[in-house]
Design a protein around this nucleic acid. Structure first.
Lengths: 182, 182
DNA sequence: GTCTATACTAAGATAGAC
DNA sequence: GTCTATCTTAGTATAGAC
């Protein structure tokens, strides 16, 4: 099962997340295509297992961080890890963060894993002063925009993501200033 | 030809840009599927025509704007129009701004149209003070992030895009402050 | 759990008549 | 330019033996 998922990720890296075929996957793991149905009830079942697997890896990565006590630095540390995780595997990033597969919706159990990571991020941002939902929304959309531009236009490089810390400061400072003005 | 493209956009709105089939498209325009090959040499030819068509519509929209003389307000006006254009048709937005179709690359002529719109945006941003490439990159990535979050999580609403003007001010102010500190 | 064999569906593309 | 007919490829899924 673990090896099947590993091979599926390999195929996704080469052909895109939508480019996985059960024939090709079976061939990579040394099986025949119908045998995969002993592990997944359908192709979407495979995607759901991958969705859960990817989110588990993300959570592992995030749990393993030793976050600085300063809340602003904690945000930077956390986001740097998140962005690194995202750009290191564009196909995985697409499955976890976008909706690239028409007809596929993660199961509730798998989706719950994704919610955990998001709530971790939200908690840190609130601790750093982003108290309103709108501020959190904007910050997360900004990070997603950086990731997307980076993967699309400069894969493997850092033309966009190198500005992450500066933009984080900008958002946190702006929020603080607006609070002080009230 | 114009009606074929219109029907193609309609299908894209319903099934997604990757969900267009030549059979379905032919049925919508009252033809048989092979007849479409009188208009396009392949399915990618259809996508290329749609890509060019979408960019032409975007340029029309942008040319029709009466931009304020103040450079900051000009940016806001321009970006509001761009964002409105993007969110009003997610499938078109995906074709023009992302790379949702494995194997499809726009032709050089079609791509040139897309470059025109981008250079308009860049010129306005520079006039408003975003003099470095990194600042322009970050601003455009931020706008794309807003659009993407809006379409994905709140289609038809304004939860993300309503912050556009505020974020524009934040970016322009931040750039100005950093320049003054030098 | 794994296999062979096959059903089923759908798509893009081509040949050649009109 | 449009048609009928067909080719070719490719995919998911199922039946049933071992």
């Amino acid at each position: 099962m673990a090896t099947i998922l590993d091979e599926a990720w390999k195929l996704a890296r080469v052909n895109g997340i939508g480019g996985i075929s059960l024939h090709a996957l079976a061939r990579e793991v040394g099986m025949r295509q119908p045998s995969l149905y002993a592990y997944f009830d359908s192709k979407n079942g495979l995607y759901d297992a991958m969705f859960a697997d990817g989110n588990r890896r993300l959570l592992e990565r995030l749990e393993g961080l030793e976050l600085p006590s300063d809340s602003r630095n904690a945000v930077k540390c956390f986001m740097a890890a998140f962005v690194a995780f995202a750009v290191e595997d564009p196909a995985r990033c697409a499955l976890l963060l976008q909706r690239p597969l028409p007809g596929f919706e993660p199961s509730i159990e798998s989706y719950a894993l994704a919610q955990v990571a998001l709530s971790r991020a939200t908690a840190l941002l609130q601790a750093a002063g982003l108290d309103s939902q709108g501020d959190v929304d904007c910050f997360i959309a900004m990070v997603a925009g950086l990731i997307d531009a980076q993967i699309s236009n400069d894969p493997g490089g850092d033309r966009w993501i190198r500005h992450l810390d500066r933009l984080t400061d900008m958002h946190l400072d702006d929020t603080r200033q607006r609070r002080e003005q009230r």
